[in-house]
Computed example of a mutant assay.
Amino acid sequence: MCAQEIEDRKERALYYLSRTLVGAELNYLPIEKICLALMFAVQKLRYYMQAHTIHVVSKADPIMYILSRPVLSGRLAKWAVLLKHASRVEISDDLPGEEIFYVDVLPPWQMYFDGAARQDGDGDGVVFVTPQNHLMPYVFTLTQLCTNNMAEYQTLILSLQMAIEIGVRDMDIYADSKLVVNQVLGEYEVKKEDLIPYHQRTLQLLNQLDDIHVGHVPRSANKLADALANLAATLALGA
């Protein structure tokens, strides 16, 4: 609701807005649903906001949540652009007569992956860590022989496809392959032609996520994914 204060500090309703959450919006964090409501209002009421100073009253701080993120991508980047255009927007946590509640912002998903290439079979292992610290381990057996780097890329691609299918939007991705990590980050050039299609497909999938971090970890920190990949490769021997 957009309201105007009249005499005796009473409010007169000017405009009502509402919409239904659809698709991936149903899986947004509580704070992101508040951000979505604010962005919807900014778009629909932009003419009011351009002509007047608007005080946003909310039980959480959507503006701070959007602008304080170290890396903006996907919907967060779009929301930040909208906020910059609404330059006179202010936020207040003053809610007379109501108790302020705090929205817990859950950490992003984590994904650890590893690929193992052998002469007789290839295996992939991936471990998802949910925001509630639940482990979700998976193994894949590849029937086509490939190099270690190709196996790493195939593991990453399969893992990203799984993450997208279950509705993951924000994720920290870790691997012990320095080459693959730095190629994905754009710090290394992809020189081998057989890796170029894998690299391009990986970037396509990453663009479907909203907020990602890709990092290198030593093999000692990736033991579970490494063990799963070796297990899958061993199982391939009897396939």
Rank of each mutant, 00 (worst) to 15 (best):
L142W: 15
W109V: 00
A117I: 09
G123L: 06
G121E: 07
Q119R: 06
V127M: 09
K59I: 02
T147W: 12
R69W: 00
Q119Y: 04
D61G: 05
L142S: 11
R75I: 00
D114S: 08
M136L: 13
K84W: 09
D122G: 13
D61P: 05
E165I: 00
D122H: 09
G123K: 07
G167V: 12
T155H: 03
F40V: 06
T155I: 03
L36P: 03
I54H: 07
T143L: 10
T53N: 12
Y65I: 00
P62T: 06
V57P: 00
I63S: 02
I166W: 09
P107Q: 07
D61S: 14
V71P: 02
P96T: 02
V71T: 14
G115Q: 08
N149E: 07
F140G: 12
P70G: 02
N149G: 06
A41K: 10
H134F: 13
V89I: 15
G123V: 10
L145Y: 00
G97T: 12
V139S: 15
G97W: 09
N133K: 13
A60Y: 07
Q161K: 13
F101V: 10
G74Y: 01
R69S: 02
V139F: 12
A37P: 01
S92L: 08
Q161F: 03
M150L: 11
P62A: 04
K178T: 11
S73N: 12
M49L: 09
Y112F: 15
I66M: 02
S58Q: 06
L156E: 00
T53M: 08
T130A: 04
M111G: 02
G121L: 05
R69P: 00
R88S: 10
K44L: 10
H134M: 13
P131M: 07
D172F: 09
R118N: 10
V56F: 15
P107T: 03
S159M: 03
R118W: 05
L38K: 09
I63L: 06
Y65Q: 03
V81P: 00
S87I: 04
V129H: 01
R169S: 14
Q119G: 09
M171A: 06
L95A: 08
F113R: 00
A41F: 08
A41M: 12
D93P: 00
S87Q: 12
R46H: 15
I54F: 07
R69L: 05
G123A: 06
P107V: 03
L145H: 06
D104S: 11
A117N: 04
V127S: 04
Q43A: 11
M171H: 02
D176Q: 12
D61W: 05
M39T: 11
I63P: 02
H134P: 01
P96F: 06
P137S: 10
M162K: 13
A80N: 05
V89H: 01
P70M: 01
Q50R: 11
L135A: 06
M64W: 11
T147H: 13
N148Q: 07
E90D: 04
F40W: 14
E99A: 15
I166H: 03
P96V: 02
V103I: 15
I100P: 05
